[in-house]
Design a protein around this nucleic acid. Structure first.
Length: 625
RNA sequence: GCCCAUGUAGCUCAGCGGGUAGAGCACUUCCUUGGUAAGGAAGAGGUCGCAGGUUCAAGUCCUGUCAUGGGCUCCA
């Protein structure tokens, strides 16, 4: 971005051309973005914005959408267009060509786009009244609908070559600016997101300022595919999901169950260390209770119910009621607060069929859920402790993360005083982390403000995991109290919080983050023993026994395959270490250690190898890093 | 829940202008007894997601249904 002062009657496009500012695509005058082809009516400060600026790139992408629309119009004469905005990696356009499109329809469109780019049509802006525009688009129900929603009496059209579209602009000067793009996918999308309305074809494309950025993005997409937890889950034999058992339910295989177990073991240990108590509520609770909590009214479609002997029960979609029951089981004194109840709670939610997605969206999953019951004056410290917990956990699993505070929404319950105090407590705790955080005004839950934690994985993708929510509603509804110093009964504050969120979902994120190469302390199998031939099987079994006794997670591959083959298969199975035992090892009572992807590490005694593994686990060293 | 696409052996996929199925890998057996990423041979394995329909005849065409994928909507 560059600021220049230009005289009256200067045409910015001409100025840019004369001064060889090739990447400049749009300008800002008096705070408004305008096309370069603008002639100044007085001397002005003008900001020149290039495709390397965020705003310039957005304009470029938006123009790319128009080029795609033009290409589609050339191929499908009756095509109609709804909206075609820029996205954070390119653009899409929702189109109606009278039929559904498939991925094989895209290459011709892309070819035509390239032709349009080469032809270098200028984008020409034209202002006209809404009535004129309505008559221009009289055959296009989508544009008519959009026009009717525009408040201004004046609208603008943009024309490049033989194609004109309703658009607020601005655009790049001409189509040749759009050099690096690729059409990626097509899918159905409702017009204006209305489920009952017409379904359009949404074509997504990637578009970048440079060839390198486009290639990097395409590489990123490949990497995403390569790391897909559904693919790796199958390859690594961790779990499967089948309609025979039920959509949205996971069948964990031994290695996947071990991985979960290691995570859960870590969690239980950490929670106990931090003053949480383990509790456990039932899976089914009487419907009366869900009525009392408000779930019956607000959450019913997502719950499973069952009726036995005239009594209705709901399968829990959340763990709070069990924890509340623990709290309410006796009189509480201000002295015993805070109470921190933790449970690896299994919850069921009947998610709509179309949203299920591997381990990321299930109908049964496990939350690392805790509820903290505390006094208002303890809230700040409790939140701080939870944030510390989040930070330590993210460090251990090797994730970066960011924080967000969501404040009071319009529709809410609880006193203003409570909201003020709780929001302040959350905010003060956030300040103490010395980390930047974003504020989402009015995005809190109706029952209280919350902090959301988004972790960033190896591909810099963000995932919502931890969340910390203050709740004024449930203590009220269940009439929870404690006896304060002055002998009066007071209402505790309840904090709902999860650290990893859902264990299943977190496993998915871990798989993708590490591409299945888990840190040694999480690797379901840490080493595989490979006897060179059957002659050394009994020595191999001896090594197996000794390593297992020392707590290592070991397998032995005693099949009659060649050593090379068994090494290859262990490599493909992402087993971190191979212990090769043959004549030499048997004689010296040792093992030849091979590290995955790195090769032979030489000979170790069983003790030395086992100590090395212990050490790496203790320091949580990622052996594949 | 909605739109489109897909559903064939444990896995990845081929076969489809209708004539009762094929490859590679995995699996089993035999030979090979191996030293750091695929030794060789033989064999077994499928009511072609499920249920109807059209037809002399249906993975192949039609309808419904379930599931998966990409989106839309949703994620309190």
């Amino acid at each position: 971005m560059e600021k220049v002062s230009l005289k009256k009657d200067t045409n910015i496009l001409q100025y840019v051309k004369e001064n060889r500012k090739d990447n400049v695509v749009v300008a800002r005058i008096d705070g408004r973005l305008v096309d370069l082809d603008t002639t100044l009516d007085s001397e002005k400060e003008v900001e020149l914005i290039s495709i390397n600026d965020d705003e310039g790139l957005q304009v470029l992408r938006h123009s790319a959408a128009h080029v795609m629309a033009q290409a589609i119009k050339h191929i499908y004469k009756n095509a109609k267009f709804a909206i075609g905005p820029a996205t954070d990696s390119g653009f899409f356009y929702d189109v109606d060509v009278g039929r559904t499109l498939t991925i094989s329809d895209l290459p011709p469109v892309e070819e035509e786009m390239k032709r349009i780019v080469r032809a270098d049509y200028s984008f020409k802006r034209k202002e006209l009244s809404k009535e004129e525009a309505l008559s221009y688009f009289s055959n296009d129900e989508y544009k008519i609908d959009i026009l009717r929603r525009i408040k201004d009496s004046k609208v603008t059209l943009y024309t490049q070559g033989d194609f004109t579209d309703l658009c607020g602009g601005p655009h790049v000067p001409s189509t040749s600016f759009i050099k690096y793009f690729k059409l990626l996918s097509v899918s159905g999308a409702y017009f204006r997101g209305i489920e009952t309305g017409p379904v359009l074809q949404r074509i997504h494309g990637a578009c970048f300022a440079t060839e390198k950025e486009l290639n990097d993005y395409l590489h990123f997409l490949k990497e995403v595919k390569k790391r897909d937890h559904r693919r790796l889950g199958k390859e690594l034999d961790l779990f499967h999901i089948t309609d025979e058992i039920g959509a949205g339910f996971v069948i964990w295989h031994p290695k996947g169950a071990m991985l979960r177990h290691l995570i859960e073991q870590y969690e239980i240990r950490e929670h106990l260390k931090r003053g949480y108590e383990l509790v456990k509520g039932p899976e089914l609770l009487r419907s009366e209770l869900w009525k009392k909590s408000g779930h019956y009214d607000n959450y019913r479609e997502l719950m499973y119910f069952t009726k036995v002997e005239n009594q209705e029960f709901g399968v829990k979609p959340m763990n709070c009621l069990g924890h509340i029951a623990v709290y309410a089981s006796k009189k509480r004194s201000y002295r015993e607060l805070p109470k921190r109840y933790f449970e690896l709670g299994i919850v069921h939610r009947h998610e709509k069929s179309g949203v299920l997605h591997g381990l990321l969206r299930l109908r049964e999953f496990t939350q690392d859920d805790a509820h903290i019951f505390c006094r208002a004056d303890q809230l700040n410290e409790e939140i701080t402790k939870v944030l510390d917990f989040v930070k330590d956990t993210m460090d251990i699993f090797e994730f970066d993360f960011s924080l967000e505070l969501s404040t009071q929404p319009e529709k809410h319950i609880g006193s203003e005083e409570n909201w003020r105090k709780a929001t302040q407590a959350l905010q003060q705790a956030l300040e103490k982390t010395n980390k930047e955080y974003r504020i989402n005004e009015g995005e809190g839950a109706f029952y209280g403000p919350k902090i959301d934690v988004k972790l960033k994985d190896a591909l810099r993708r963000e995932w919502q995991c931890a969340t910390i929510q203050c709740d004024f509603a449930l203590p009220e509804r269940f009439n929870l109290v404690y006896t304060d110093k002055d002998g009066r009964e007071k209402r505790p504050v309840m904090v709902h919080r999860v650290i990893l969120g859902s264990i299943e979902r977190f496993v998915a994120i871990l798989i993708e983050h590490f591409t299945g190469d888990f840190p040694l302390w999480l690797a379901p199998v840490q080493a595989r023993i490979l006897p060179v031939s059957e002659k050394f099987l009994s020595y191999g079994m001896e090594v197996y026994k000794r390593l297992s006794e020392r707590g290592l997670r070991i397998e032995i591959d005693a099949r009659g395959e060649t050593l090379s083959r068994r090494i290859r298969e262990a490599e493909k199975a992402h087993i971190p270490f191979m212990c090769i035992v043959g004549e030499r090892e048997k004689e010296r009572k040792s093992i030849a250690v091979r590290q995955r992807k790195k090769g032979n590490m030489g000979n170790f005694s069983v003790e030395a190898f086992s100590n090395m593994i212990d050490e790496m686990c203790k320091n949580r060293i990622n052996q594949t890093a």
